[in-house]
Design a protein around this nucleic acid. Sequence first.
DNA 1: CCTACCAGTAACATTTATTGTTACAGTATG
DNA 2: CATACTGTAACAATAAATGTTACTGGTAGG
Lengths: 137, 137
Amino acid sequence: MNSDFTLAIHSLAFLALQPDRMSTSIDISESAGVHPVRIRKVLSLLKKHRFIQSKEGTGGGFIFSLDLSEVNLWHIYQLTSEGALQPKCPESNNQCIVGSNMQKVLFTIFLGAEEHLGDYLKNYTIKDVVDLINQKQ
Amino acid sequence: MNSDFTLAIHSLAFLALQPDRMSTSIDISESAGVHPVRIRKVLSLLKKHRFIQSKEGTGGGFIFSLDLSEVNLWHIYQLTSEGALQPKCPESNNQCIVGSNMQKVLFTIFLGAEEHLGDYLKNYTIKDVVDLINQKQ
DNA sequence: CCTACCAGTAACATTTATTGTTACAGTATG
DNA sequence: CATACTGTAACAATAAATGTTACTGGTAGG
């Protein structure tokens, strides 16, 4: 599983806890323990899909632009990691009945698996994640 | 997702279609398009868990040792890929409420996700996979 | 017994994917 | 116009996956 997914969740949760002011990529990167540029890359994707807003220049940064309970983990998974479950099969042998059909069969099965995973991830909104964080506190 | 999982499925499906004779790691590797040693590594795991039997020497190889419908994809996932969904979080900042708790929260969520995935994978036995392969043919 | 064949496995090499870093352009602020 | 940001591309470093070689030991058949 791609860590862009978890970085996105981390960032959104961070922003959710700073609803009144903008947070910079450095703020978030220090919380998440990664390089600010990675944060910007991930957040640039979230911005493109209107989950957050950003502002350049002094006092700029990122801020959550939707209601916390409008965004769930499936939304984020789709942006950052769709297809990640799909295994990368090497080119297999077309002379062989197994080799020639396995790829299609697995593709079908993993497509279903991802849908199924989606049903689970839809149950967690950013609000839920924030609540869980506060509980642990 | 680790490709050991799909290699294991591929190998078992291959063996399932050769129920009366032993198949060598070379036979299987030619079908799957990978190096024989990788096949042996994966199959060594399957053997350890009694899904298959192996025999060394001339005429040796691997053979399925259970009923096709006794083995499902969740069994295989557990052997080859358990924990693969779990994202590898970098050490995050303990000074920060988000950084210090995110890891635990995500761990919990992904544990649930894997269980959920399990429920789906249990629906597919090797027999089902073989049937799908034959259908495509 | 000797040879050919095959699994099992460790050690190492290569390739690919992920992540980190630098650099710089563009924009807002005071 | 200096400072503080985002946005992004290009490149470097690291880590993970995969491939390869080499060797051990079991097995069958001549």
